[in-house]
């Protein structure tokens, strides 16, 4: 897909994400917005998947280990007609089909996530199944950076390298903030690239909010035959809304009417500039 069209879609997904958060009166706004560009490129330019193929055994899989960014995933799946729009109108509301963390009761959601440190192991299992069956599908897994303090991730990393899963692509949403503060203050992750390399991944860094750069990097996987790929995506928490960017308080917050109106104005302006 053309870069300009991808950018328009990312803009639309940001609008939809904020609509979902506003109508639910809840959501992980900052972490949703940091990963929207990654989701945009994956779902429109990378993944061999469509609403008609959600049960196709040969489809690519997207596993969102950072389940708290559910609204971003729901926004994309809803806009691409995997999920009926009505289903995400009251995320987490009474009798809503959509919970506040991804549920595979919704078409297109592969796995239930939300408790952190789970998605990577499940992804290793899916990628291993492809190898065992001689299938060509790939597994793309998005993990949060704060989430990497969960030890189970590193068990999964060891296994991914051990099984030579070059059909596994892990993307770290490196927005550098978690609920209590900077990732480096809460539990230092750096040198993160070296850690993943030491665990047997082929690693590349990218600006995770640069659509063109993301498109390029995804076209280059696997980076090395016989090794799992890791994309260290440097992102901005709250990306796209001026007053939310890099602001800790927007980890989990709903905009007021005034803030919502300003956010929509900013996104409208960005959209106009994209035409």
């Amino acid at each position: 897909m053309e870069i300009c069209e991808l950018k328009k879609r990312a803009n639309r997904y940001r609008v939809k994400t904020l609509e979902i958060i506003k109508s639910a009166n809840a959501g992980h706004t900052g972490g949703d917005l940091s990963c929207i560009d990654i989701l945009t490129v994956l779902y429109n330019d990378v993944l061999n998947i469509s609403p008609e193929k959600i049960k196709d055994p040969d489809r690519d899989r997207y596993i969102q280990s950072k389940g708290h960014a559910a609204e971003a995933l729901y926004a994309v799946l809803s806009e691409l007609d995997y999920i009926p729009a009505d289903w995400v109108k009251q995320v987490g509301g009474y009798l809503s089909p959509a919970t506040g963390h991804p549920t595979n009761n919704l078409p297109g959601v592969e796995q239930n996530t939300g408790a952190l440190g789970h998605g990577l192991s499940v992804s290793v299992g899916i990628a291993l199944a492809a190898k065992l069956d001689g299938k060509k599908y790939r597994v793309f897994t998005l993990v949060g950076d704060g989430e990497l303090a969960e030890g189970s991730n590193w068990e999964a990393c060891m296994a991914a390298a051990n099984f030579k899963l070059d059909n596994l692509v892990v993307i770290v949403d490196r927005n550098r903030l978690q609920i209590s503060g900077s990732t480096e203050d809460v539990m230092a992750l750096e040198p993160l690239k070296l850690k993943f390399e030491a665990f047997g991944f082929a690693v590349h860094e990218v600006d995770g909010n640069d659509i063109a750069a993301l498109k390029d990097i995804f076209s280059a996987v696997p980076f090395e035959t016989g090794k799992p790929s890791l994309i260290l995506a440097n992102t901005i928490k709250g990306k796209g809304i001026s007053y939310m960017e890099n602001q800790l308080k927007w980890h989990h917050r709903v905009p007021t009417e005034e803030q919502y109106s300003q956010a929509m104005d900013e996104l409208r302006q960005e959209k106009e500039e994209l035409v």
């Binding site: 055994p57 192991s121 499940v122 992804s123 290793v124 299992g125 199944a129 189970s152 999964a156």
Partner: peptide, 9 residues
């Protein structure tokens, strides 16, 4: 976790 992924396939 790996078992769950394998079973999903």
């Amino acid at each position: 976790g790996i078992s769950a992924g394998l079973a999903s396939c």
